[in-house]
């Protein structure tokens, strides 16, 4: 099929088989390898990307679904080469160890903040609790999301 989509703000046109999974389009065809495959069954969230701002599991979503829509991957998160406040927050709070779940965690956090710039702790936990991390025990990730709230609200013009 002829696919037209926008990935990280860049229009993409590609001829792909209908059965192409989004993760394969990103990783294999577009070399956007920041998106990670783990459970491959929509549970862990390592492969999370945002589709029109909403989190989806790219491991199990057809690239077809991105037709005429906007995809954001971890590669598109940094703002003009400098870290997004959410990324800074994760670094400051040690919200990552091996880094494999991290892109998914960052994108999931972004989707939360877009929806609710001032989430309370319960909302944060409900949202980010959809993603798995085997390294950190989650505490620093929750702290990183809280810090993200602070930093994004303090970033002028954001």
């Amino acid at each position: 099929m002829q696919l037209q989509t926008t990935i990280n703000g860049k229009p993409i046109q590609a001829e792909v088989p209908a059965e192409t999974l989004l993760i394969d389009l990103l990783r294999d065809d577009l070399d956007l390898t920041g998106t990670k495959r783990s459970c491959d069954m929509q549970i862990c969230g390592s492969c999370t990307v945002l589709l029109d701002g909403q989190p989806v599991s790219s491991c199990s979503l057809l690239a077809y679904e991105t037709q005429d829509r906007q995809v954001l991957t971890i590669e598109g998160v940094s703002l003009n080469g400098s870290l997004h406040p959410v990324q800074t927050a994760f670094l400051q709070e040690y919200g990552l160890q091996c880094g494999f779940c991290t892109p998914g965690m960052v994108l999931t956090t972004l989707s939360l903040l877009a929806e609710n710039p001032n989430p309370d702790e319960e909302t944060i936990r409900a949202h980010i609790g959809s993603n798995l991390c085997r390294c950190t025990g989650y505490y620093p990730i929750v702290n990183a999301v809280k810090k993200s709230v602070q930093l994004t609200n303090n970033t002028p013009g954001d």
Binding site: L83, F90, L91
Partner: peptide, 21 residues
């Protein structure tokens, strides 16, 4: 100290074995 590999990992630039082609 902050994690020295933090920036690579937080931006998705860190290369894992599966990223090698």
């Amino acid at each position: 100290a902050p994690q020295v590999d933090g920036p690579a990992k937080i931006t998705g630039q860190a290369k894992f074995a599966g990223d090698i082609k």
